[in-house]
Write a protein that binds this DNA or RNA. Structure first.
Lengths: 353, 353
DNA sequence: ATGAAAGCGCTAACAT
DNA sequence: ATGTTAGCGCTTTCAT
């Protein structure tokens, strides 16, 4: 029942080549030259006669032939592929769902295409060893590795980086660390958010988000520092990053009159969005009664009701930096960690100053 | 100058192997056996003495050795990699930004990990030829290809599919087509949305979204059919998929009293979200004055204010179907196109029935 | 149970 | 400008 589909063009195989050209040697034979020449011709090398080169290229096109990449990569010891790893460390669900990571991934794909690299994606679940990372670095399948988020694997990454150079990580930079990171100054971001809220009159703040990952922890720290400096109380509401189940917590916190919260620093835009919706349900006016600042500035932040004031992480820039640093490393050069500066985007969930 | 590689990284940190094991042969020499035996041992083959096998595996672990995948794949003619292509045909911006595609990509990564395949991502900009696709299919780098979205490349995909079997496409299915697709019944989805709006009293509908891609076109068609059947007028507002610039259009349409729109079928959740925000700004009550139904049921749909009623596409299921069909094709089997049934998710942007 | 040997399909150094 | 040759590092008969 498999080869039943003999409709359409001629015979049962359509208009295929009578001689199927599958290798350089095949094409070489057909063109009456050697495999070496074909290789050079297809690579567009100058040292081959212009006429033969064009003839060979034409033949290749005609037969739909492309050199086998596996062989080529084996021979040249260069794969043209960058591995992108997303460690799903402290995630319950084994799924790539974080919209920030997904957005970063999209931008990485763009940056790599521009640099002529292909992207090999690995979603991995760390297992207590460094195997999840070394499976990629040691496979000979990639020229370098990008890690999206340290999860709870800082030690592993640090250790692997000592023997595997071409690696760049999105995440938090600890003083003196060996591996190269690109990331936002999360503490500053948290501070900017809290300061903005206070500047426009907030008297009691809440920080929403679980401080499990180091990044959120830093955002919390920054917000706390700003609150303390201004003598404004700040409570911590460990709302989960995304997921439908976070609402009850937020709801409880916001509807508790005792709390009297009038300013929210959300650990992410998604959490902010969720808060927005609870507030909407509770009939609390934003920003008149409660102000909110999100974090990330994902595309959706501009489209909430009302549009979300947020701390912008320069995702596209971050992606470009990661790729640039990695290509430098791949080329044998060196690279430094880089911390980008977050900026406050004022939309409509904060009162005007 | 080529053999400059005197043990690469180890200059600054001392705890590396004194003898770097880089190939099977290296390890074989060290273990006093032949390369063939090492290969068999590491592959966990039964025909090698249990004791030697374990000894060799231990040595490999100790030296952090892994067989070069390029060589292995070349030899076995099987890559273990699936290519995922996102054609950016009618997108202005050269960027993977569509949150639906990104979400689908995440689920594909999950499904592939389960099936033991790696994922190679290519973002491509179609150029008028079929090159963007054949570059992947003909590269010898992947065992099969998944295409996320047909964009405006239906013809190209159809044509390539005639000579390249292991390919599955997310998108619209035309009767009699050759290539295998998995997709939602968009027309039904559009109809469900419009019918639901009408059932709860809508008297004048708007369909929001550019009908450039075939999928949106079908959603529009479904909505129109339902509207006509009920004798309810429906206007088309060509709001762009995502992007900040769509608001003015929506705003204009909604604030024009002449239109008297009281029901919106949005072509995507993002468009719905944008409409929601305009309405919020115009002080129009949702769902009391105007009802909205989105499309996709992305995670964020549950978190808008008020939570969005929407047409759910089973993204995780779709991803699983695509991967299953592709692996069947790769294994030499056959596969059929499949159209999944969208379902209406009732949240709070539609009035109760 | 293990070794020897023959490639997988390509590239590049070395001839000519 | 082109052909010849020697591998890249692995897997897998075929022998033993």
């Amino acid at each position: 029942m498999i080869e039943k589909d003999n409709r359409g063009a001629s015979g049962e195989d359509g208009q295929e080549d009578p001689v199927h050209v599958r290798t350089l040697a095949d094409l070489a034979r057909l063109a009456g030259v050697s495999a070496g020449t074909v290789s050079r011709a297809l690579a567009g090398k100058e040292l081959v006669n212009t006429e033969t080169r064009e003839r060979i290229q034409a033949m290749a096109r005609e037969h739909g032939f492309r050199p086998n990449q596996m062989a080529s990569k084996l021979r040249t010891r260069r794969t043209g592929v960058i591995g992108v790893v997303i460690p799903l460390g402290h995630e319950k669900r084994q799924q790539i769902s974080d919209p920030f990571f997904l957005t970063l991934l999209g931008h990485l794909a763009d940056a790599m295409t521009e640099s002529g690299y292909d992207l090999m994606l690995s979603r991995t679940i760390p297992d207590g060893t460094s195997d999840w990372l070394e499976r990629i670095t040691g496979s000979g399948m990639v020229d370098g590795v990008l890690v999206i988020g340290q999860s709870d694997q800082w030690e592993v990454i640090e250790q692997v980086s000592r023997s595997y150079r071409p690696m760049v990580v999105w995440g938090h930079h600890r003083a003196g660390q060996h591996h190269v990171t690109v990331g936002t100054d999360n503490e500053l971001g948290g501070r900017l958010a809290a300061e903005r809220l206070i500047a426009s009159g907030a008297k009691k703040l809440a920080f929403m988000g679980v401080t499990q990952g180091i990044e959120i922890e830093m955002r919390h720290r920054g917000a706390r520092a700003a609150a303390e400096a201004a003598g404004v109380p700040l409570v911590h509401i460990p709302a989960r990053l995304a997921g439908e189940e976070m609402d009850p917590l937020i709801q409880a916190a916001l509807s508790e009159p005792l709390y009297e919260i009038d300013g929210i620093v959300a650990a992410s835009d998604l959490i902010a969005m969720s808060a927005l919706r609870c507030l909407h349900g509770l009939n609390r006016a934003v920003p008149r009664e409660i102000q909110i600042v999100g974090f990330d500035d994902l595309p959706l932040a501009a489209h909430t009701s009302p549009p979300l004031s947020t701390i912008r992480q320069e995702i596209a820039l971050g992606a470009k930096l990661m790729v640039d640093k990695l290509t430098a490393l791949i080329g044998g050069g060196s690279a430094q960690s880089e911390i980008t500066t977050p900026v406050l985007i004022e939309r409509a969930t904060t009162r005007t100053l």
